[in-house]
Structure formats: C-alpha cells, structure tokens
Computed example of a mutant assay.
Amino acid sequence: MALDFSLTDEQELLVESIKEFCERNFDEDKIVEMYNNRGASDELTKAYLETGMGLMGIPEEYGGIPADRVTLGLLTEEISHYAGCVTPFMNNTLAMCDMIDFGNERQIKQCMEGYMSTGKPIFSLGFSEPGAGSDNQNMSTVTTKQADGTYRLNGQKTWVTQGESFPYVFVVAKDEDPSRENRKMSMWLLPKDAEGVSVSKLHKRGQQILPFCEMFFDDVVLTEDMRVGKEGEGFINLMKNYEMERCLVVAMVLGCAQAAMDDAAAYVSKRETFGKPIASYQLIQEKLTDMEIALRNTRNMLYKTLWKIDRGESVRIDSALLKRYGCQQCAWVASEAMQIFGGLGFTTELRVGRIWADLRGCQFAAGTDEIMVYIAGRQLAKAYAQD
C-alpha cells in the first residue's frame, strides 16, 4: 500500500487557522499573564471554541465536529507550536470526551452547556493519589454505602489539573473496600463546594497555565444520581482513553519542542563569536542535527500511532513507546535549545527555558517514562517470544 504523508486540503486550512489564532492570542506578554494568573481566561477558551477547534473530536450529536485521530494530533501539535507553550485546550477536550464516553444524558447535557458557555469543562479530573499515580490499583479513596441509600466519600486526590478553577470534580473511588486487592471502582461527579471537600494548591516548576492542586474528601455525601457510568467499572473506564491521551500529550510536547527549535536554529545565524556566526561551528551543527532527528522521529512515531488508532488497530505497545521516547526527546530538544542560547537561555527573557520546564513535566503526565517500560516491555517480550 502506498504511503501518503501529505496533508489534506482541510488539514492545511486547519493549520493556517491555528497559526492565525495563535498570532492573535499568544504573545509573550499574554503568556506571562496567563502564567501569573494560573490559567487561561474565559475569553481565550471561548474564542478557541468559537473557531470550531474546541469542538473537534466531540461527537456531532452533542454539537461537536467529527475528526479523525490524525487530525486531532495535528491540531494539538500546531497549537502548541504556534503558541509556544503548553495550553489548556487538549486537556479540556479530553475531559469532555471522558464525560461523553461515560456519563448519562443528563450529565452530558449539563457539562456540554457549561463547556459551550466558556470553552472550559465544568469539572476537573480527580484520578491520581499520593500513593497511586501510575499504580491505579493502589488507590485508597473509597465510597461506603449508607443505610439511607447515600454514599460517603473519603480520601485524597492529588495533581488535580485545574481543580482549583472548576466548580465540579470527576472522581474515581473504590467501592466499599480501600484495599489494594479491590479492583471495583466507580466514577462520580460532585460539586467542589460540597460539605467535606477541601482544596490545597500545589506549585509546579512549569505548566502554570495548567495548575494543579490536592483535594481532600471527608465524609462527603454522594447520591446515586452523581454516579458516572456503571457501578464497579471505574477502573476499566479509567484505562480506556489512556492510549489516546498519551498520543496527544506527545503531540503537545512535540509542538512546544518545535517552537524551541525554531528559536534556537534562527539564533545561530545571528549570534557571532570570534568574528563568525556560531552556525559555522561543527558542534552547533551537531546539536541542530540531533535535535532535528529527535523531532522527526517523534513526529513519525506519533502520526503512525494515530493512523493505527484510526484503523482500529491495537496501539498498546506503540503508545507506550511513543510516550517514553517522545517526551524524553522533546524535553531534551528544549534543553539543547537553552544550551545554544547559553546563559541567555536560562533567563526569563526567552521562552526556551519556560518551554523546557513545561516539557519536563510531561515525562510524568499520563504515565511516567518508567511505567511506559513496564507497559511496553512485557508486551514486547511476548511479541518476540519464540515458539
């Protein structure tokens, strides 16, 4: 079968629209303001929604715009590339898709109405815990059913992205028994201002547009209508969308790394030492060459994996390999961009240092580098086993 790496006419128009949107809405002053405010404004997220880009990937019956996975990867990469920072858009769309996949019609309607009014979900995702990040089975947040038919929620969630900003939280908790052996979990949508819910800010090295926090649940009363999806199926549901999430995380870091490369590669022809541009030095040429190889390899892996998802093929190994390689290499590209700028790259005068800090955090998001080895390594051993 012939391979075609060209963009469709629609995808080319999308890239042009993304570039125009970012030129209007992202400059360094605005990005610094978003970092200082720990989030994007309603005006920005609503403007993104109104372009139609914020509706891509959401099913048409809920007001969305159907899009294949390759196009969603392109959207995520180019937004990050032209914005030059980690944006909230991919996280917002993924959260809405989770609710559409698992919620009932009433819950979906409530969440879509909120999303359409601001371009932001009304809820954050409370999945990770201090003792259960990649090891979801070690989750200990638990609900216990009461005699009156209500439930009591107790436990703690951490790294809750945008949890301090949104009025609801989408929580995964074990049913009845917090022990490691219990794999029965359920999902719940509850108001953040419910009695017994408290929030504590966490401060990251980067990604300030996507702040996260800790949440504590102390005998929070839940009712059956707050349940999202079927009882006991929360763990299974939790695993369903990780592969696509990992692809989009890599698309985001790839776009940011490309922005760092743009800056560094342009700088080497302007910066002179010992009477000539540093672009003439072989060591600088080697850096640019290896950075470009890392970007191209990541891009090739990303779009092949997304292409396989569109074809209905398994990407369990592919997505883990992509996540491990892509996040490591893109953070390295940003680090090398800082090195090319020298001491200037380590100041806040340039964006390459901020980009590096943003990308370093993505080596933890959606599964750490080490967990990707655990996921892929076992499957590779089986795939290569001799009969």
Rank of each mutant, 00 (worst) to 15 (best):
T143C: 11
R360F: 11
K30A: 05
Q282Y: 12
D310M: 14
E129P: 08
A173H: 05
A95Y: 11
I355A: 03
K323R: 02
R378A: 10
Q11P: 03
M90C: 02
Y35Q: 10
I317G: 03
E129G: 13
Q285Y: 07
P121R: 00
L222I: 08
M372N: 14
F123I: 00
C111E: 10
K304N: 14
T161A: 04
L44G: 04
G353P: 05
L350Y: 11
S17C: 01
R296E: 14
T118E: 08
N104H: 08
F123E: 01
R354Y: 07
R354D: 03
R205D: 15
A385N: 09
K240G: 12
N37W: 10
E214L: 09
V15Q: 01
H81E: 05
F235E: 02
T347M: 09
F274H: 04
L359D: 06
I79D: 07
V220I: 13
M301I: 15
Q11C: 08
D262P: 01
E78I: 03
M90D: 00
G229C: 00
G52V: 08
F123A: 08
R24V: 04
G163L: 00
K204N: 03
L3Q: 01
G361L: 11
R152N: 06
Y115P: 09
K230C: 06
V172N: 01
Q208W: 09
E10G: 05
D218L: 07
A357W: 14
D369P: 06
E336L: 07
I18Q: 04
E77P: 04
I375K: 10
L55Y: 01
K240S: 13
M239V: 11
Y48I: 03
I375M: 09
E43S: 06
Q339W: 04
M56Y: 01
G229M: 00
A95V: 14
M99V: 14
A266V: 09
D369T: 10
M226I: 00
E233A: 08
M112S: 06
V352N: 04
Y267H: 12
M291C: 07
A259V: 00
K145E: 12
